[in-house]
Amino acid sequence: MTTNFIPSFKKQAGDVIESHTKDDFILKELVPLSCLFERNSKWMIEIDLPGVDKKDIKVTVTKGHVVVKAKLEESYKVSSHGHVATFESLKKAVEIPPHADIRKISAKFRNGILVITIPKIEFGKRIPVR
């Protein structure tokens, strides 16, 4: 990805994004934004994956984490203090929330956002209502 408009935006916002790019540089992969929502009987994790094709997304469940890795269609370049770094992929490991039924995890990708749905394990003893 290259741009003509970005330099003016970058000049304005570049230093603010520095701490996030530090994570990128340490991990050598871009770290996407994500959110966790609790919806009644399920957890939903949304991960922002711009510039990615569905076929290039890999979702794996490891011990306690959902790991998402995605290849960018176009490489992303970041210049900082005269150095240019090129990133080809995004990666994020999200801790699985409590009481999640990992056998029933599902994922959907729409408009560049990956939505991972994890149903909650149902607990408790049913009490009959008389």
Partner: peptide, 20 residues
């Protein structure tokens, strides 16, 4: 035109500002 071309880039570039 230029904005439309840069949409994915802007989403990646705006991550830290969004989080803040």
């Amino acid at each position: 035109t230029e904005f439309k071309k840069q949409m994915n880039y802007l989403r990646l570039q705006g991550r830290q500002l969004m989080e803040d």
